[in-house]
Write a protein that binds this DNA or RNA. Structure first.
Lengths: 155, 155
DNA sequence: GTGCTTGCAAATTCTTTGCACCATC
DNA sequence: GATGGTGCAAAGAATTTGCAAGCAC
C-alpha cells in the first residue's frame, strides 16, 4: 500500500489505542496530555509495583524531556481520581508498634489515622506455611481500609 | 521514714522497673544503655503507632541531650532484635498498582519484594460495613509476611 | 484566550552516616 | 581497656513546591 494509506491506518490505530485513556479522563474530569497518556500506558504495562523512579525511567524513554516532578504530580492525580492505587496506605514515615499481641489495622483513607483491632475480632483462618509458589507465610497483617467515625461525621 | 531509707527503697523500685528491659537486652545480646532504657519505656507507653519524631520528642523530656540519630539507630536495633515491629513492611517509597482486580500481597521480610496473590486464593469473608467502634470498612488489604522462595533457598 | 500542565530548580522532609568523645562490660 | 554507643553535623534519599513558559479546551 502507499505511504499515505499506511499513515492513515496508523492514525486510526493510534486513536483506538488512546481511546481508553481519553474515556477515563473524561469520566474523571481531568485533562488529557501527552505526558499523562504515556504515563498511563507505562503504569499499565509495568508488572509488580513500580516506584516513581522506575516509572520515570520508563517514561523517559518515550519522552526524554519529562521531569520527575511531573511523574509525581500525575501519579498523585491518578490516585486521587482512582485510576491507580497506592500499595501501602501508611507509608511516608517509619512507624513503631509493640511486638506483643497479634492485631490488625483500621486505616482511615481520609485522615490516614491508624488504629488497632484485635486478631480475634476477625477469626480468620491463618494459613501459615508454604503457599503455592513457594512463599513461606509466617504472619498475616490485615489493613481494613475505610473511613473512621470522625471523618464520616465530617462529610 | 528517714531520707536514707527512702532512697534505698527508691533504688530497689528502680531496679525492678528496669529489670524487664535488662532481661530483654541479655536475651537479645544487646548492651544496656540509659538512652535505650528510656526509649524502651517511651515506646511501650505510647499508644498507637508513633513516628520517630514523636518518640524523639517524648524521650527528650527525660534526656534533653539525646539526638534524633540515636532514636533512629535504636529503633532499628529494636526491630532487628524483634523487641518492636514496623507497622508497614513496605514503606520507604511510593508504590503504584493498578486499581483493577482485588488481590493481596506477599511481602518478603528479607528482600522486601512484593508479589500479588489473588483475592480468591484466600476466600476470606470480606466483612465490609460499619465495624464496632464506628469505622466504615470499605476494603481489605492483606499482607502475607514471610520469605520468598529465593530468600529461603539462600539460607 | 483562559486556565490547567509542564519542566526546572530550589526547598522540605525523612533518614543515614562519619567521626570524635564517652559509657558499658 | 577494649568494644561498642552517643551526639553532632553533614550527607543522602524521597518528595514537594514556586514559578515562568507552553499546551489543552
Amino acid at each position: 500500500m502507499t505511504g499515505n494509506k499506511y499513515y492513515y491506518l496508523l492514525s486510526i490505530v493510534n486513536r483506538l489505542e488512546t481511546q481508553e485513556f481519553r474515556d477515563l479522563c473524561a469520566t474523571h474530569g481531568i485533562t488529557v496530555t501527552h505526558q499523562r497518556q504515556v504515563l498511563f500506558e507505562a503504569l499499565k504495562s509495568m508488572p509488580g509495583h513500580p516506584s516513581p523512579e522506575e516509572v520515570y525511567a520508563r517514561v523517559k524513554r518515550r519522552i526524554p524531556s519529562i521531569s520527575l516532578a511531573t511523574v509525581y504530580k500525575n501519579i498523585h492525580l491518578f490516585f486521587k481520581s482512582g485510576i491507580f492505587r497506592e500499595v501501602s496506605l501508611h507509608h511516608g514515615s517509619l512507624r513503631v508498634e509493640l511486638n506483643s499481641r497479634s492485631h490488625h489495622h483500621l486505616v482511615c483513607t481520609v485522615c490516614k489515622s491508624i488504629s488497632d483491632i484485635d486478631e480475634e475480632a476477625f477469626g480468620l483462618p491463618q494459613r501459615t506455611g508454604i503457599l503455592p509458589g513457594g512463599f513461606l507465610a509466617e504472619r498475616f497483617s490485615i489493613d481494613v481500609l475505610g473511613r473512621c467515625a470522625a471523618c464520616q461525621a465530617k462529610s
